[in-house]
């Protein structure tokens, strides 16, 4: 872990009418670090992730990338800063084929400015084969593909480009066991390449298996940020449900330190 965070979110606030969806949240992410982002539905974690992805503007707060303050007016700004997002909805255009989706918004072009479909197909074949060797339906509209294949396209799109920060929103929710294992392997591999990953997940097993740290949100506030070996699953559950650690946590941790 290096000392400069890849990304710093400082004092982020977002409200809708009177509702504070994100209430003064600060979060750092370092290179080669997997941080689990947990919380109930509606706790504000998706909202926070959308702000970092450039899909939503915060009302207050600052985002720094590599120490420099940035403003993400739209998702393109975030992607240019190396922040890629895999949305839970996958965000695929159903009528387009896999290469068109993979390169959507960043199409490869020939010298004359035409779409270079041949090269996009070739590149897609390479990156998809790395994730799923059985992926063959490259020229079918993605609406005709299985949930796992669609997920693979969404992942491929996020790692193909020069990615430094990866936001994964429930990346394994639609997947079977072997595909889930593939995603876990991929996360470890990306971490070893120095990419910072924010993993939004409900799966406590995945979180404890993959993450270096966990942050927990409750009612828009950040109620806990801990190294994965400082807390147990019960501690994290307590943070999610009650917004605070169990009463005996500090005593236990003191014992462990001694």
């Amino acid at each position: 872990m290096s000392n400069t965070p890849l990304v710093q979110m400082i004092g982020i606030e977002k409200h809708f009418g009177g509702v504070r969806a994100v209430d003064h949240v600060s979060l750092d992410l370092y290179p080669g670090e997997v941080v689990g982002v947990l919380g109930h539905n509606g706790a504000g974690k998706s909202c926070l992730m959308r702000i970092l992805a450039g899909a939503m503007l915060p009302n207050e707060g600052e985002i720094r990338v590599g120490g420099k303050t940035v403003t993400f007016a739209d998702p393109n700004d975030a992607r240019e800063a190396g922040i890629e997002t895999i949305y839970q909805t996958l965000a695929l255009a159903d009528h387009l084929d896999a290469p068109s989706n993979l390169f959507l918004g960043r199409e490869l072009k020939t010298r004359f400015g035409n779409l270079d479909d041949a090269r996009m197909l070739e590149e897609s074949r390479k990156v998809l084969a790395r994730l799923n060797p059985n992926f063959k339906n490259l020229s079918d509209p993605v609406s005709s593909l299985s949930g796992g294949q669609r997920q693979v396209i969404a992942i491929a799109r996020a790692i193909y480009f020069d990615t430094r920060v990866l936001i994964m929103d429930e990346p394994t929710a639609a997947l079977g066991p072997s595909e889930t294992a593939m995603v876990s392997d991929l996360i470890r591999q990306l971490r070893s390449e120095g990419i910072g990953i924010l993993l939004v997940s409900h799966d406590m097993h995945d979180v404890f298996d993959l993450c270096d740290r966990v942050v927990v949100m409750n009612k828009g506030r950040l109620v806990g940020a801990h190294g994965i070996d400082e807390v147990t699953k019960d501690d994290v559950l307590s943070l999610i449900v009650k917004g605070e650690l169990p009463a005996d946590w500090s005593a236990r941790n003191l014992e462990a330190a001694q």
Partner: peptide, 15 residues
């Protein structure tokens, strides 16, 4: 095509 297929996805993809 992308806009008509899934407007939100197109927007999130930088279209």
């Amino acid at each position: 095509y992308a806009t008509g297929s899934n407007e939100e996805a197109a927007r999130l993809s930088g279209v």
